[in-house]
């Protein structure tokens, strides 16, 4: 059976979980991007944020340091398998949280079906009664914010090996 390929915006915490463990739900979601079961949406601000956070996390407190070249290779692989939006004209103002703002702006631009995150505030935003929550529902009526586990539960075929 042919499935519609989900268009995903991936939060940095999901990428980090995927890199740490390929067998985790996040790892399976990124693996599905590689197998073209899903599409990862990317933009320059999002890739810059991935680069910045990975560099800080992986050089800060870990005993095994990751050379910048490895980070660059992973980011280029994502660009190779993903859908890169050179320009993101859509804007979702969310001054309290610049990272969420850039992820949501990309979701609007790329017509994402899902934002995959493990951030409680972002996960609760679509159901929030705040002004930002209302704008989210208006601008992204079809987009769901889910954990990697929830995405795999909703669409188990994503994680299946071919």
């Amino acid at each position: 059976m042919e499935h519609e390929r989900p268009q995903l915006v991936v939060d940095t915490n999901t990428l980090l979980r995927a890199l740490a463990n390929a067998e985790s739900p996040s790892g399976k979601v990124l693996g599905a991007c590689e197998r073209r079961r899903t599409v990862i949406l990317l933009s320059k601000p999002v890739i810059d944020e991935y680069r910045r956070v990975l560099a800080l996390v992986l050089t800060d407190s870990r005993k095994n340091r990751i050379p910048p070249r490895h980070i660059e290779l992973v980011l280029r692989r994502l660009r190779y398998i993903g859908e890169y939006h050179r320009t993101v004209r859509s804007r979702f103002e969310y001054p309290r949280d610049p990272t969420d703002s850039m992820l949501i702006s990309l979701a609007i631009e790329g017509r994402a079906t899902h934002i995959v995150s493990h951030d409680k505030d972002l996960l609760s935003l679509p159901n929030s009664r705040t002004e930002a929550g209302k704008r989210f529902r208006q601008r992204l009526p079809q987009t769901r914010v889910v954990t990697a586990f929830a995405l795999l539960e909703e669409s188990p075929w994503i994680g299946e090996l071919m």
Binding site: A20, E34, R62, R65, H70, V74, R77
Partner: peptide
């Protein structure tokens, strides 16, 4: 290199560092 190696392969150093 990024186009010829899989995401899982490229993630190996991260798995080791974050073990």
């Amino acid at each position: 290199e990024a186009s010829s190696r899989s995401f899982a392969e490229l993630a190996a150093p991260f798995r080791e560092a974050l073990d």
